[in-house]
Structures are given as C-alpha cells and as structure tokens.
C-alpha cells in the first residue's frame, strides 16, 4: 500500500517536473528548424521561477472564480496523471477512480474554469478567447466520444490501464483501425492543447490568438500556475497517446527503483520523439483560419468513425 502510494507520487512528480522541459524542448527544436539558436530547453523553469517571485494582481471586479481558477487548472492534470499509466503497467491505487470518459471530464474542468475566469475578468480578449476555445472544444467533443467508443470497442475496456494492457499483448500492434484512432487522437490533442494548426502557441497576436487571450489577465504566481497547468495538460495527453494508444511498452511492472528508472528513461525517450513530431508538424503547417476549424475537426470525426467501421468488419 505504501509502495503504491510512493509509486503514485513519483508518477505525479515526473509529470510536474518534465512538463516544462517538454515545452522548452519543443520551443528549442522549432527554433533549430528555423535556423535560430533559440532559448535553452530549461527556459520554462526560469520563467516559472520569475513568475512565482512576482506580485499577484487582479481586477477588483473579478469574483472568486478568477482567484480559484489557477489552482483548478494546475490540479486537473495532476489528478488526471493518477488515472493513466504514466510509469507503471499495473494500476496504482487511484487508477479505477475514473475511466477514459471520467478522466476526460477531469481534464475538461480545467478548460471550463479557464473560460469562466476569462469571462469573469471582463477583459474583451478574455471573452473572445473563451468563445473561440468553446468553438474548438465543442467541435472536438464528438470525435473524443467516438474515440472513447472506438478504444473501448477495440480493447474491451475504457480504463486506461486496461487498454494499455490489452494493446501490450496485441499482435499485430498496428492495425488500420488502430492507426486511424491514433491519428484522430493526435489531431484532437493538438486542437485541445492550443497547438498549430488550430492555435499558434508561439505568439500572442490579438486577431488570431485563442489560448493566449484567456491567460491575459493572470499575473505573477497565478500566471505561473496557469501556464504550468497548460504544459502539464499537453504532457499528460501525450502520455495517453504514447503509453495507451501507440506504444504501450517500456513501463515498469513492479515498484522497484531500477524498474522506475527504466520507465522514466523510456518515457523521456518517447516524449523526445513526440516533441520532434510536434515540432515537425508545427514547422510544416501554418495556422488555419478559424472558420476552417470545423473542417479539421470534421476530418478527425471521419477518421475515428472509419476506425470503428473498419474494426467492426475486420474481426
């Protein structure tokens, strides 16, 4: 019991500490692609340290929602990390608190409160960003639900640990329906975490930004928590994509120091691969117009739909 608790803590700590590094590595890789030297991969840690040392300020009109949102945004990915196989192939004590649908709610509550806070501060950009992000999320929702259906259908369960186990023993690992669902999930993941081609994380250009406008009114430690929470959201969703959907190997099978060290190393290597992939996607694609977002997300819907059709006929 104690060992399981320690394992859980280590998994959460890994998410906490590696998420800023992932953001830094992606930024560095993109700079390299653009023939720039770019900031150090550790720059996000310095940013966090700087922001935590600053004063917090909020408009007097803002209500309790605005003050509580940073903590919720920060806590949601941590709670999510307890539900998914970050380091271990076997379920830890909290693993059966929620299945994929439930963990989708957990990760969604952060976005919900971010939108409320953005409206709450009465900044015009906040309302703009909130309504745009609702557009993206509401269109991503049908695809996400279909992905949950498809994953449940393919693996016979929706608890992330069970899916991981089923795919770990599956042969061949990559079937067409499986590849389609992985592609659809990656596309939705990019849309939900505010990456290209939906939103440009590198700039805060007023006319087109989605994510940045929701964070405008936060300052000091609040801003640090919001940004850290956003990086962790990207990190844990990528963990789901990597460890549950496409590459279920390399996880620890028991709670020992060497097994965890290997699992952390494997996860870091997988994350590096994902960072290269995301940097490649973001360097190759430009941001699409907001009115074309429905086409992008309609494409993900068709991919997940075809996955279900192909799977139901393939067996």
């Amino acid at each position: 019991m104690l060992a399981a608790a320690i394992g859980q803590c280590v998994a959460v700590l890994v998410v906490l500490t590696l998420a800023p590094l992932l953001k830094g590595v992606i930024a560095r890789l993109e700079a390299v692609v653009q023939s720039r030297r770019g900031p150090s991969p550790f720059q996000p840690y310095f940013d966090l340290a700087k922001l935590f040392g600053k004063q917090r300020s909020a408009t007097p009109e803002a209500s309790w929602v605005f003050r509580f949102t940073p903590y919720i945004v920060f806590a949601a990915p941590i709670a999510f990390a307890m539900l998914i196989p970050v380091l271990t192939a076997f379920p830890l004590s909290w693993a059966f608190m929620a299945d994929m649908v439930g963990s989708g709610f957990v990760i969604g509550i952060g976005g919900f409160f971010t939108n409320l806070a953005a409206m709450d501060s009465a900044s015009p950009y906040g309302g703009l960003g909130a309504s745009r992000s609702r557009l993206v999320s509401s269109l991503a929702e049908p695809t996400l639900i279909l992905i949950f259906f498809a994953v449940g259908y393919i693996s016979g369960g929706t608890v992330p640990f069970v899916v991981n186990d089923v795919l770990h023993n599956a042969s061949p690992l990559i079937t067409p329906s499986h590849a389609l669902i992985a592609a659809a999930f990656l596309m939705v993941l990019l849309a939900e975490t505010g990456r290209l081609p939906i939103d440009n994380p590198g700039t805060a250009q007023e006319l087109s930004m989605i994510e940045a406008s929701r964070l405008f009114e936060f300052s000091g430690p609040d801003q640090a928590l919001m940004e850290w929470g956003g990086w962790m959201k990207l990190f844990v969703l990528l963990v789901v994509w990597l460890n549950v959907l496409i590459w279920p190997d390399g996880l620890a099978t028991q709670i020992t120091l060497p097994a965890f060290a290997i699992a952390i190393g494997t996860l870091a290597a997988k994350m590096l691969g994902a960072a290269v992939l995301i940097a490649g996607i973001e360097s190759a694609l430009s941001k699409i117009r907001i009115l074309r977002v429905p086409e992008y997300l309609g494409g993900t819907f068709v991919l997940s739909f075809l996955s279900i059709v192909l799977f139901s006929l393939g067996r």
Binding site: P294, E295, G298, G299, V302, F305, L306, V309
Partner: peptide, 14 residues
C-alpha cells in the same frame, strides 16, 4: 460544404 460532404462521405462508406 466540406463538413457536410465529410459526413455524407462517412455515410456512403458505411
């Protein structure tokens, strides 16, 4: 329109 076309296409696939 394209989203409609995608949905109709999914139906045709079915």
């Amino acid at each position: 329109g394209f989203p409609t076309a995608l949905l109709i296409g999914a139906g045709l696939t079915l």
